[in-house]
Design a protein around this nucleic acid. Structure first.
Length: 254
DNA sequence: ATGGCAATAGAGTATTGA
C-alpha cells in the first residue's frame, strides 16, 4: 500500500503531469493540494479513466484539495468542523481501513502578516479536530503541504531562512503540537539523503541550485508508523516541462 | 532593499504563493 501527497499548483495546468506520474507510480492513494478548480471543473472522468476514484473540494483561483484512490472512498468530510473557513483546504476520508486527511496548510506570507495569524489559528484548530479523529480512527495519516520546514536540515539555507515564514518558531511549535498527538513524520523514520526538499522556488534557478525546503509531509499515527517501510521524495517531476514547484512524497505501508 | 517565476483573473496589472 502506497500513499502519497502532491501540491500540483493548478490541476488544470498539471493534469498531464499527474496522469504521467500515476502511470509510472501507481500509488493506492494520492492527496492533491492547490487544485485551484471549482468542483464543476474537476477532471473526474480523466482521473477515473486512470483507475482512480476521486473526491474533491475546490474553489476558484486558490486552494482546493482532492483525494484519489484505487480503493473505495467513504465518510468524506470537507473542511475542519471546528473551524469556519471559506478556504477549501481540508478533505478527510476513510479508505482501506485508514482515515486519510489531506491538508493544504495556509502559507502565512510573512510572520508580521494577518495571514500568519490565520495560519497559526488554522493549525491550532486542526490539532483540536485531529485529536478526536485519532481517537475514532487509530490508523490515521495526515498528508499534505504543511508550509512548514520542521527542522533546519529541511532548509537549504537555515541562516537565510531563520525566523522567516515556513521556519519560524511558532510554526514549528504548531507542527510539534501535531506530532505530540502521536503523529510521526514518515520521512524521518528512515535514513534519507542530505538536502532532501519537496519544494523549490521557480526563481533564481532554485531547483538547479537545490535551493529548496521540505514542507510537504506525511504524518502517521502510531498504528500506521509501525507499518511504514519506506518514505521518499520523487524529484523527477520537477525536471519536467512546466512543473509544479512541489514534488510528490510517497510512503509505503506494509 | 528589491525582484527574481508562475498561475489566476481579466485585459493593466494586482494578488498570492513559499
Amino acid at each position: 500500500m502506497k500513499i502519497a501527497t502532491w501540491n500540483v499548483n493548478s490541476l488544470k495546468v498539471r493534469l498531464s503531469h499527474l496522469l504521467q506520474w500515476l502511470s509510472t507510480h501507481p500509488v493506492d492513494i494520492l492527496c492533491l493540494q492547490e487544485t485551484k478548480l471549482t468542483d464543476d471543473k474537476f477532471p473526474v472522468s480523466k482521473i477515473n479513466a486512470a483507475g482512480y476514484q476521486v473526491v474533491f473540494s475546490g474553489q476558484k483561483t486558490y486552494n482546493g484539495v482532492a483525494i484519489l484512490s484505487k480503493l473505495p472512498i467513504t465518510d468524506v468530510v470537507k473542511n475542519n468542523p471546528l473551524f469556519d473557513d471559506p478556504q477549501q483546504r481540508i478533505l478527510a476520508a476513510t479508505i482501506g481501513g485508514m482515515r486519510i486527511v489531506c491538508a493544504y496548510v495556509p502559507n502565512g506570507q510573512s510572520v508580521d502578516s494577518d495571514k500568519y495569524a490565520y495560519k497559526l489559528s488554522w493549525l491550532a484548530a486542526l490539532r483540536e479536530w485531529l485529536a478526536g479523529e485519532m481517537t475514532a480512527h487509530p490508523a490515521l495519516a495526515l498528508l499534505g503541504d504543511y508550509n512548514i520546514a520542521p527542522e533546519d536540515r529541511d532548509v537549504h539555507d537555515p541562516v537565510e531562512w531563520a525566523g522567516q515564514i515556513h521556519c519560524s518558531d511558532r510554526e514549528r511549535a504548531a507542527l510539534a503540537a501535531l506530532t505530540d498527538l502521536g503523529l510521526q513524520d514518515a520521512f524521518r523514520l528512515f535514513e534519507q539523503p542530505e538536502k532532501s526538499y519537496s519544494w523549490w522556488d521557480y526563481r533564481m534557478l532554485g531547483f538547479r541550485r537545490n535551493r529548496g525546503l521540505r514542507i510537504d509531509h506525511i504524518l502517521l499515527s502510531r498504528a500506521l508508523a509501525a507499518r511504514c517501510t519506506a518514505c521518499e521524495i520523487d524529484r523527477e517531476p520537477r525536471k519536467w516541462e512546466q512543473p509544479s514547484d512541489h514534488v510528490p512524497v510517497t510512503a509505503t505501508l506494509a
